[in-house]
Design a protein around this nucleic acid. Structure first.
Length: 409
DNA sequence: CGTCCACAGGAATGACGGGCGG
DNA sequence: CCGCCCGTCATTCCTGTGGACG
């Protein structure tokens, strides 16, 4: 006889997902396929912490979605639980520098993670550093500080903070600090002060990209946890793997595709996740990414972006900085706000490039000068849609959208 | 083979709003 | 409440440069 409870349970449960959260980016699984070597390396490096010794500082390199963060968190989790078991004092501090890309905020995050309360603005960075030192002097144990996406900090603010952090042990009593720096840009190391480089790079681990086969293994592993049995059509995982492999073997990308494909299938009331849902997921992810980035852009950055769309004829052509600036000025006259200087527009173009909305690479045209060749790097429709959300520039966007479509049509 | 274009991009500086310690 | 410091956006002034043209 069927129990009423079971009927209700089934009604609440998703027909597609068993545990959707397994596919979310910050989920750290119990098993990480094809990363055994890296896990062992890191574990060996960090193991001395259990004896109260300071582990060597580590540099971890690898492109996005190669498992750097997952492996690090995984090993630290194991380390901390082992420490708890045997009674050693080991703590880990994880800071993602990407969205806290100033020395002050990074220090504030570290402070907070070790239980020290600091105001999130108002103090000098030196003062916060001093407070952290003072606080740690009264503590015992090993602190492993992870600085993820460390290149974002260094690029804008130099390596002063890293230098200070690597030397913090000289000021401490019975506590120890070791640092794990994670970066996806190998070239960035060259820009470091040699002293920082050698002290931070006591150990180095390189994470190679996954190939399509390995991505399939990763996806299968997670899919078994995440989905109800039999809801994935056979081609779904290979497709996600292939698409992500094309983007330098980005596992995060692959997992996103799989998750969003499942969400779309569920939303559409389909009992199976199919290849068409994966393709729809690709579009949706791109659209969301663009919308989110564009939404937070300052006014003039939006206008410059609109100018790029106009100057490239909706993404079909290339443009130069000068051409973009001309279009920008036209847009300014429509919107009726004060214009920024050429220098600033040039700077904004660089910022848009960093955000991945456009690509801008410098070329020399000899007699005809040196400039940047600018192209759109995101879907034109998604960009225009996102820009139109801002009421202040709606008219201007409509104008260029009309012209662009007119040219295309 | 030197010029000189059309910018790149660094540095110094400042205005401004937010937010804290005292 | 004041004074200070912060991050952000912007300006001004600047030096640097790859390579087609003459």
């Amino acid at each position: 006889m069927e129990r009423v409870e079971d009927i209700f349970e089934r009604a609440i449960k998703s027909p597609i997902f068993k545990r959707r959260e397994v596919l979310l980016p910050d989920y750290v699984p119990d098993y990480l396929p094809h990363r055994d070597a890296e896990i062992v390396r890191l574990a060996r490096i960090l193991a001395p912490a259990l004896r109260g010794e300071r582990p060597n500082n580590v540099f971890i390199f690898g492109l996005t979605g190669t498992g750097k963060t997952a492996v690090t968190r995984y090993v630290l989790r194991r380390l901390e639980s082992k420490a708890l078991e045997v009674g050693s004092r080991v703590h880990s501090v994880y800071v993602n520098v990407r969205h806290r890309e100033t020395p002050y905020r990074v220090l504030a995050d570290i402070a907070e993670a070790i239980g020290l309360k600091v105001p999130f603005t108002g103090l000098s960075t030196g003062e916060v550093y001093g407070r952290i030192v003072k606080w740690l002097r009264r503590k015992t144990g090993v602190y492993v500080v992870v600085l993820d996406e460390i290149d974002f900090l260094v690029k804008k603010h130099g390596d002063d903070l890293l230098y200070k952090l690597t030397r913090i042990n000289e000021l401490l009593g019975s506590s120890r600090v070791s640092i794990i720096g994670i970066t996806n840009s190998v070239r960035f190391v060259e820009s470091l002060d040699p002293r920082v480089r050698s002290s931070l790079g006591e150990e180095e681990i390189v994470f190679p990209p996954y190939n399509a086969e390995q991505l399939k293994d990763i996806l299968s592993e997670r899919a078994a946890e995440a989905f109800n049995p039999g809801v994935l059509e056979d081609e779904v995982i290979p497709l996600c793997a292939a698409l992500a492999a094309r983007e330098h073997g980005d596992a995060r990308r692959a997992l996103d595709l799989l998750r969003v494909a499942g969400e779309i299938a569920e939303r559409q009331g389909d009992s199976l996740v199919r290849a068409k849902h994966v393709h729809a997921a690709r579009m949706e992810i791109e659209r969301d990414r663009v919308a989110e980035v564009v939404r937070t852009l300052p006014l003039h950055a939006k206008l410059v972006l609109a100018a790029v769309i106009a100057a490239t004829g909706g993404g079909r052509l290339q443009a130069t900085t000068g051409e973009v600036y001309d279009y920008y000025r036209r847009l300014i006259s429509i919107v009726g706000v004060e214009e920024v200087t050429f220098r600033r527009v040039s700077g904004i173009i660089g910022e848009l490039d960093m955000l991945g909305l456009i690509t801008a690479r410098v070329t020399s045209r000899g007699r005809y000068g040196k400039t940047r060749v600018i192209e759109l790097a995101a879907d034109t429709g998604a960009l225009i849609e996102a820009l139109e959300e801002d009421p202040a520039i709606e008219d201007a966007i409509d104008t260029i959208a009309g012209e662009t479509l007119g040219l295309q049509g």
